Simulated scan of single mutants.
Amino acid sequence: MLSIVVPCFNEQEALPYFVKEMEEIGSSISHSIEYIFVNDGSKDNTLESLRELHQKMPNRVRYISFSRNFGKESALYAGLQAASGDLITLMDADLQDPPDLLPQMIERIETSDVDCVGTRRQDRRGEPAIRSFFARLFYKLVNKFGDTEMVDGARDFRLMTRPMVDSILSMTEYNRFSKGIFSWVGFNTEYISYENRERVAGNSSWSFWSLFKYSIGGIVNFSDAPLTLAAFIGSISCIAAIIALIFIVIRALLFGDPTSGWPSLVSIVLFMGGLQLLFLGIIGKYIGKIFLETKKRPIYIIKETEKDLKKER
């Protein structure tokens, strides 16, 4: 069986297009298919659309609806937990992940020693320039300073074997960053490149600010480089301050103690104060992650599934 996990947040407009195209592609796949849609606290009629899909295809369409918006990472985790297939794929409902790649991905995973076939964009055409710049910067930073390599342009759209999915599910951390987790668990992975596609309908829920916070979380979750950098710059600043202090004392002994230099002194104080606040923020980010992990809160809360719909009937 092939399990197709689809996280949904306000995807009412895109769902009909997605299901139609997937059904066309499904006819060329020898595997039986189950859809697992995860409604991540949508504000539109996504849940009603999922109920209708389940009624039309009760043996193939399953859905999970959260009590609120928990984020895409939680939706992916819930979908993987619910998947029962031997092969599991993650896809977005907006058709930016090309379904026509699935037959090629299945063939590749069944005819070679590969545990995962991922996808990556060849370029970032159609994406705002500032967003593309920071995306490339993120991958450069995380690969340079982190212990886990992440492929630039890689999508969540990937086909995985059951052992790999079980390994991912064994990582029950609250602060999740799937791109890093996919790489961290290992397994043989190959990538297929494709040209960037626009959404088939609706609007993206990812703003620049939300992507920025997501990237910061990825760096913090899979690298302690920011802490190392803070300690390094702090050490350099201390050494520079000691050298400056020695210089000032010697100058005062030889030439007296002039009263000039207040602007430069204030600038230095403000600069050092800014550095301290920056480093406290970095440390605070790590402490915050630890704080959330120690609470042992659930990654998501389910409000409704297709089983509840059957009970109502």
Rank of each mutant, 00 (worst) to 15 (best):
V185A: 12
F187K: 09
T189A: 14
T189G: 08
E190Y: 01
Y191C: 11
Y191Q: 07
I192R: 06
S193P: 05
N196F: 08
E198M: 13
R199E: 06
R199Y: 02
V200I: 15
V200S: 13
N203Y: 11
N203K: 15
S205R: 11
S207W: 10
S207Y: 11
W209V: 04
W209A: 09
S210V: 05
S210Q: 13
S210F: 08
K213E: 03
I216C: 08
I216H: 00
G217S: 02
G218H: 00
G218K: 09
V220Y: 02
S223P: 03
A225P: 02
L227I: 12
A230K: 01
A231I: 04
S235N: 13
S235M: 15
C238A: 10
I239H: 03
A240L: 12
A241G: 04
I242C: 09
A244H: 11
A244F: 14
L245I: 05
I246K: 04
F247W: 13
I248N: 06
I248G: 03
V249T: 06
I250F: 14
I250M: 09
R251G: 14
R251S: 14
L253S: 06
F255G: 10
D257V: 13
D257N: 14
S260L: 07
P263S: 11
P263I: 05
V266M: 13
I268G: 08
I268H: 09
V269R: 12
V269G: 05
L270V: 13
M272T: 02
L275V: 06
G281I: 00
G284S: 06
G284M: 00
G284D: 01
K285M: 05
Y286S: 08
K289L: 07
I290S: 01
T294E: 06
T294R: 12
R297N: 03
R297L: 11
R297A: 11
I301Y: 07
I301D: 11
I301H: 08
I301F: 09
K303H: 07
K303T: 05
E304H: 07
E304W: 04
